[in-house]
Each structure stands twice: as structure tokens, then as C-alpha cells.
Amino acid sequence: MATYLEKNGACYERKTNLQVHPEDRISIFDHVNIVPMTKRSNVNETTWQNAISNNRSLIVVEKNVPGPCTGAKFLQNTNDICHVIGMMYEKLLTDYNTDLTNEQCFRSISRLRTAAFHDGYIWTRFTNKLAVYGMEMWHISLLVTYKSSRNIQVHRPYWNIRPDVPRLEQRQNALALLNTANQNSRFAEAFQLCTSCVYDTQ
């Protein structure tokens, strides 16, 4: 089968399978340019079938309706992950601060995490709250580092809990972000637990 390069703006994304619309512009190569850039509808069916079945073919497709390139998807998913992490921060802070005096309360997960490393009472209380969600301090450390390192202000209401969308569906949508977020399995585990905490689902 042919190899496809999908062009979106300045990005080219290699694909082994691609739906090509008649209005998409294509160019076909087989060591030489067989079909110069033209609309798919201008290429006869025999030439098209020969090209897509030939494993030496390279088909460049400039979509009629371009979508985001891989880099844009990565950035959007990174921002969405940060937003979900922020929602977890709020929940954990609420849990931690319950029944404490104002002086004992924390308003920032980063500060709470730092304080926990220096105070046994805070460590015990915080790690006990984390354990409710199956989390350990290293999970929080990974998530805090991820969010902080990007220094992104994330305000994406799509990920907020809404009455019109089942929480399990929201969690599954959030977990699907990991497919393009390019993180290791330890981060994936931490984010899975994060989404379970945020959306109250397993």
C-alpha cells in the first residue's frame, strides 16, 4: 500500500491510511513525480488505484479542509492535561483543608507538597488524603512538575464537570489525551489516577 504525507499548513504527517476527498489536492510520486499537485477529482481512477496499491508510491495530500498538525494537537492536549491536573489540585486542597484552621490551610498544591517534605504532620495528612485516590507523593510530584514546567494558564471549561456529560465519558475523553501527549508510563499512571480523582470514576 502507498504511503501518504498529509499536509496541514507547514506540517507534513506520515500516514499509512488516509481518506482522500475529491477536492483534496494530491501529488503522486514513485521515484519520480507521476502526478503533479492537482485535485484528487482530476486523477483518473486507474491511476489512483495503481498509486494507492503500490507500496513504492508516496502520495502527498493537501487537505481541502485542513486540520491541526501534530504539533498543534500536542500543544492542545498538553493544555488540556494541565487543566485536568488543576481540577485535581482544587479537589485535593479541599480534602486536605477540611477541618483545619485558616492558618493550617493551603491554597496551593505546590506549597502543600513542599511543606509536606519538611513537616511530618503535613506529610502524613497529605499522603493519607492522596491514598484515598490511590495516589502517592511521587504521582503528585510528576503532575506538579509537568504543569509547572509548562507555566501555562489553562482555562478550558470543556473539561469541567458538566451535568450534560457523564463523568465516565469525561474521564475517558481526558485519558484519550495521553495518546498524543508523549509521556512515559509512570506519568500515564499518575494522570489516570488524577482523572479518577477529578471525575469520581474508575
Rank of each mutant, 00 (worst) to 15 (best):
N179T: 12
E13A: 07
V165C: 08
T145F: 11
L193Y: 10
H139L: 08
N54R: 09
K15T: 03
V165Q: 13
N97T: 01
I34L: 12
T201H: 01
Y89G: 02
A72Q: 12
L142S: 11
Q19A: 15
K147W: 02
K7G: 01
Q104S: 12
N102L: 14
I26H: 00
D99H: 08
D99W: 04
C105K: 15
M88Q: 08
Q170T: 12
V84F: 02
S53C: 05
V65L: 05
A10T: 14
L100F: 09
N160I: 02
T98Q: 08
N160T: 08
V32C: 06
M87S: 06
N44G: 02
R162A: 14
E6N: 06
S141V: 10
N55T: 12
D99M: 05
D99C: 03
R25A: 12
I26Q: 01
A190C: 03
R167F: 07
Q104I: 01
R162M: 13
E136Y: 11
G86S: 15
T3E: 00
G86Q: 11
L92Q: 05
R186E: 13
T70L: 08
I52K: 05
E62P: 00
R171M: 11
C197V: 02
Y199R: 04
S148G: 14
S196K: 10
I152T: 12
F187K: 03
F74V: 06
T16G: 12
A176R: 11
N79P: 00
I81H: 00
R156C: 05
R14A: 09
F29E: 08
Y133A: 04
N151V: 08
H118A: 12
G86A: 08
E45V: 06
A10P: 03
G120P: 07
N17K: 15
K73E: 07
I140P: 01
Q104C: 03
N79Y: 06
Q172P: 01
S148V: 10
R14T: 09
M135A: 09
V20W: 02
S149I: 09
T38K: 11
I28V: 12
P22L: 07
M137A: 11
C11P: 03
N64H: 09
S141C: 10
E169H: 07
Q153Y: 14
D200S: 14
Q183L: 12
N151T: 09
R171Y: 03
Y121D: 15
Y12H: 08
D24S: 04
S57T: 06
L168R: 07
M1G: 10
R113Y: 13
T201W: 00
I52C: 04
V43W: 00
E6R: 05
S196V: 01
R113E: 10
H118W: 05
